[in-house]
Write a protein that binds this DNA or RNA. Structure first.
Length: 663
DNA sequence: TCAATCCGTATC
DNA sequence: ATACGGATTGAC
């Protein structure tokens, strides 16, 4: 009988001081997304510290949890149960990170438990019991010196930014790196300035290869023992060991991939992110937070500075500038020109338009000549080809702009080759299509073939070594000698001394992607490749096989990601897309999605798009115009999810806020 | 009138 | 999931 059991537990004595532990239980039901109070047994009182792991009996089951805080009393009306077990006294979830996780859960209409699974790595008991190393204060920190003027002098506000960090202030900047910039070094210098002020820093990068570069630059700049690198592929023991080094304040700096945005760094002075436009920053697990958003939230909560750095510029970064949240940290045009390679378009001729698959088969002569000259000069040539497997997209015959729905501006798609194009968002068939850019009324399917580029190039340049870098096998670097390097976006190796030429091929595959970020993403990928070339003055040449009249091609020719981003953001404001507006997508069985929409008290002015079928499920989109309304939207959806989970309603509905794959 | 059972709801 | 309270049922 329970009363007897409860009495037996009651006979245990609660701690004399702060007998209550407020616990975040690992239960991801929306209606249970709040702390629960437990009694701390007196004999365990010393171990029960804020942030430690515990097990508790919750609704009859044993569940994991974290102690959020100790308290003198509870607001709970009934009896409190005792903690079942103190897993470890190690404080792995300090209040600052708990508050961050709460804020992220709120913003993404998710539960704290889900965010904590992303924020705290699984425990590894052996790693925990290993002895602590000397704290950072005892380690030799490289003395902070003003950065070498030759490095930062190109950026008028650069040295002021570093000085502000070194003086303990919290500057925020969108850093647009010059072509060929040694960005890991620049990020490391910003971190060094922060460490000099006695504060910690977090820097994130998209993938393991970028992390290797940043890690090396950190060691070179800060010296050993000041930072740890965190990423998912470390394996559980090593991952937890490094996490603990940060958590135990043995190091003040953490670098890593997206999950490192949650890393336990105390007294945070700087958050930095490299290339925030990369898809890899979008967390694929609920509640699908984006690392940039996590870091910005964190900078806000911690009063820390922020460095949003990239060669390109995302609409989100542009918004930070336009709202004055961050300052622009960029070089003046004449310096940009000086450092950039020379870019030329190789026009898309009529033949190729009729047969997109023939693009790679017939390298435009300008591209061929440019590559030949570079090879003759003994410099490697980078050839960027898109990966296969893009969605069939639809664009305007006249101006090639991606086709959009006349009602809600969603992207049009073809489900089969004979079907009428329809909107991916609201499902409306596009029978009366009119291009939003040029008014054209005809559509064309832009279904793209793949590149068998490497062999073709090998044949075009006999005797020249051809190397490939792609998904399966990524090269970090190549030597500064004549070679053809064929790479997919994101896998471009760095060339010793820079590439003599970069060819950007099969550009239709990027330009006609079905999502609405196509333009931004295209420029980001092109710049990422082009930045690896030598400056024009040292012979660096870029050939982009695309129509020179396209806006995105113009932006590359002029090396002007800032103007492009401003235009992109203006367009999204006009069309009502993130980050100007905020959107939520609700995916699940049709009845469940409908139920959610009935239950949710959507904020004033919320606009419902769809639902449309997505496989066996349906997806509805809810759009609000302002970011303030975005908060209310997330609250409304989380509350509705709470009602559904309390009722044990059938069918799970996935809620995603501003999901990147939609645009 | 009381125990057995069902159902809804909270979960400390 | 499980536990509890309150309502409902059915046997006496």
């Amino acid at each position: 009988m329970t009363t007897r059991g409860a009495q037996r537990r009651q006979q245990r004595e609660a701690a004399a001081t702060l007998p209550v532990a407020r616990v975040a239980v690992d239960v991801s039901l929306a209606h249970l997304d709040r702390p629960f109070d437990y009694l701390v047994p007196t004999d365990r009182s010393d171990e029960v510290v804020a942030g430690c792991r515990v097990r508790v009996r919750f609704a009859g089951r044993l569940v994991d949890g974290y102690v959020l805080e100790r308290a003198a009393s509870s607001d709970h009306q009934g009896d409190l149960a005792f903690l079942d077990k103190v897993v470890s006294a190690e404080p792995v979830l300090r209040p600052e990170v708990a508050a961050l996780a709460r804020a992220v859960a709120d913003r993404y209409a998710g539960t704290l438990a889900d965010v904590l699974r992303l924020a705290v790595p699984p425990r590894h008991a052996r790693a925990e019991s290993q002895p602590q190393r000397a704290p950072a204060a005892a380690s030799p920190v490289a003395p902070f010196a003003a950065p070498d003027p030759s490095d930062w002098a190109a950026y008028p506000t650069g040295s002021a930014f570093l000085t502000a960090l070194a003086e303990g202030r919290a500057p925020k900047a969108v850093f647009t790196a010059l072509s060929g910039e040694d960005w890991p070094r620049r990020v490391a210098e910003a971190v060094l300035a922060t460490v000099h002020s006695g504060r910690g820093a977090i820097a994130v990068v998209p993938d393991a290869r970028d992390l290797d570069r940043l890690d090396a630059a950190m060691t070179a700049t800060l010296g050993p023992g000041i930072h740890v690198a965190l990423h998912a592929s470390l394996g559980p023991a090593e991952r937890y060991r490094r996490f603990l080094r940060a958590s135990r304040r043995e190091v003040p700096v953490v670098v890593g991939t997206r999950a490192a945005a949650f890393a336990p760094v105390e007294n945070l002075g700087l958050v930095a992110i490299w290339d925030d436009g990369d898809d890899l920053y979008a967390e694929p697990r609920a509640p699908y937070p984006h690392a940039l958003q996590v870091l910005l939230t964190r900078a806000q909560l911690a009063g820390a500075g922020a460095l949003v750095a990239a060669t390109a510029r995302s609409a989100e970064a542009q918004l930070l500038i336009e709202t004055r949240w961050a300052q622009e940290l960029a070089a003046p045009r004449e310096v940009v020109r000086l450092r950039a390679p020379a870019v030329a378009p190789a026009g898309d001729d009529a033949d190729r338009e009729r047969d997109p698959a023939a693009v790679t088969a017939r390298l435009p002569s300008l591209a061929w000549r440019t590559a030949r000259d570079s090879l003759a000069a003994g410099a490697p040539v980078l050839v960027q080809v898109p990966r296969r497997g893009y969605l069939p997209a639809v664009s305007c015959v006249e101006c090639h702009a991606p086709a959009r729905c006349g009602r809600c501006s969603g992207p049009l798609e073809l489900r089969s080759s004979h079907a009428v194009a329809a909107c991916r968002w609201c499902g409306r068939p596009a029978a009366d299509f009119a291009c939003h850019r040029c008014g054209g009324r005809r559509l064309r399917a832009a279904i793209v073939g793949a590149g068998r580029t490497a062999e073709e190039l090998g044949r075009a340049f006999p005797g020249v070594p051809v190397r490939t870098s792609g998904r399966e096998s990524v090269l970090a670097t190549v030597a500064g000698e004549a070679a053809l390097v064929v790479a997919t976006p994101g896998a471009e190796p760095i060339a010793d001394g820079g590439y003599g030429a970069v060819l950007l091929l099969d550009t239709w595959a990027l330009l006609t992607r079905a999502d609405l970020r196509a333009g931004e993403e295209t420029l980001r990928r092109w710049l990422a490749a082009a930045t690896l070339a030598r400056p024009a003055g040292q012979g660096g040449r870029i050939v982009v096989v695309a129509d020179g009249g396209l806006v995105v091609v113009q932006a590359l020719l002029r090396w002007d990601p800032a103007t492009f981003a401003a235009r992109e953001l203006a367009e999204r404001r006009e069309l009502g897309f993130p980050p100007a507006a905020r959107m939520a997508s609700l995916t699940g069985p049709a009845e469940a999605v409908a139920d959610m929409l009935t239950l949710a008290a959507l904020p004033e002015g919320a606009e419902l798009l769809g639902p449309v079928p997505v496989g066996d499920d349906e997806r509805a989109l809810v759009r609000v115009a302002s970011r303030t309304a975005g908060g209310a939207l997330a609250r409304a959806l989380h509350a509705a999810a709470g009602v559904r989970s309390a009722r044990k309603a059938d069918g799970a509905v996935r809620i995603q806020i501003d999901p990147r794959e939609l645009w």
